[in-house]
Simulated scan of single mutants.
Amino acid sequence: MLSRISRAVFMTALGLSCVVPTIQSAYAALGGSPMTPPAGASVNSQAVSSAAVAHAAASSAASTASTPSSYTVRTTTFGNGTVVREYLAQDGTVFGLAWNGPQMPNLNDLLGTYFPQYLAGVQAARAVRGGHGPVAVDQDSLVVHSGGHMGAFAGQAWLPQALPAGVSGSDIQ
């Protein structure tokens, strides 16, 4: 009997040792610093000027105070094929995120201190319409759209109050 228990413990430990390394955590936080890429991930950064966006917005009477700004889009491709794009303000804080790929990234890590607010928004939305499926949390201080199915997940999250001048939520892709 003891050998069965020992064998079960060994097999469980062996199984966990095979599974745990495949779990990839992003270590980023919306409203905070960019992620530390996990081993095996590739990272590319691209500076973006919102001048064209701001120019189009400035043509409307409501947005004449908009001034062009720049931000950085940092793209991390995980070993599993999931891609996370972080939108960084000039001071280096993450004001937006987008993801797509075969596995859902860890939203707890990505959303950081905003994760409890996101969960509350999801619970409220599901209480109204029920079921599962795509999730949209649209609040004054947090917007998260997430959906997909096994093998194809996508989503965006941003802080409306932290968007640079000339940048809108539709720019987070």
Rank of each mutant, 00 (worst) to 15 (best):
A157G: 02
F153Q: 02
A162V: 08
A136G: 14
V135S: 11
P160E: 12
Q161V: 11
V135Q: 13
S146L: 07
G151L: 06
G155D: 07
V144R: 07
V143F: 10
V143H: 06
G151S: 10
G155V: 03
L159I: 13
Q161G: 13
G148S: 01
P160N: 06
S141R: 14
H149C: 00
P160V: 13
V144E: 03
P164M: 04
G147T: 00
V137K: 04
H145F: 10
V143L: 05
D140T: 15
G148E: 11
V144L: 09
V137G: 00
Q156L: 04
Q161W: 03
Q161C: 04
G147C: 04
Q156K: 12
G148R: 06
H145E: 03
H145M: 08
A154M: 01
A136W: 10
Q161E: 14
L159T: 03
D140K: 09
Q156Y: 04
D138Y: 14
G147W: 09
D140E: 14
G155L: 02
F153T: 00
V143P: 00
V137R: 09
F153D: 00
L159K: 03
P164Y: 08
L163W: 05
P160A: 03
S146Q: 03
L163Q: 08
G151Q: 05
V144P: 04
H145G: 10
F153R: 01
G147Y: 08
W158C: 10
Q161F: 02
G147P: 02
A152P: 00
M150S: 11
D140I: 10
G155S: 07
D140R: 13
A154W: 14
V137F: 09
V135W: 12
Q161R: 15
L159A: 08
Q139P: 08
A154K: 08
F153N: 01
A152V: 06
G148N: 08
V144N: 03
H149L: 01
W158A: 01
H149W: 09
V143R: 07
H149F: 13
F153C: 01
V135D: 12
D138H: 11
G147A: 02
A136I: 14
V137Y: 07
L163M: 04
P164Q: 07
S146K: 05
G151E: 11
V144A: 05
Q139I: 13
A152H: 10
D140W: 05
L163C: 00
Q139T: 15
G151D: 11
L142K: 06
W158I: 02
G151M: 03
M150V: 13
V135P: 09
P160R: 05
M150T: 15
D138T: 15
V143T: 15
Q156M: 12
Q139C: 06
G148L: 01
P164H: 12
D140V: 12
W158V: 01
L163S: 07
P160C: 12
V137D: 00
P160T: 13
G151H: 01
P160L: 05
V135M: 14
Q156W: 00
F153G: 02
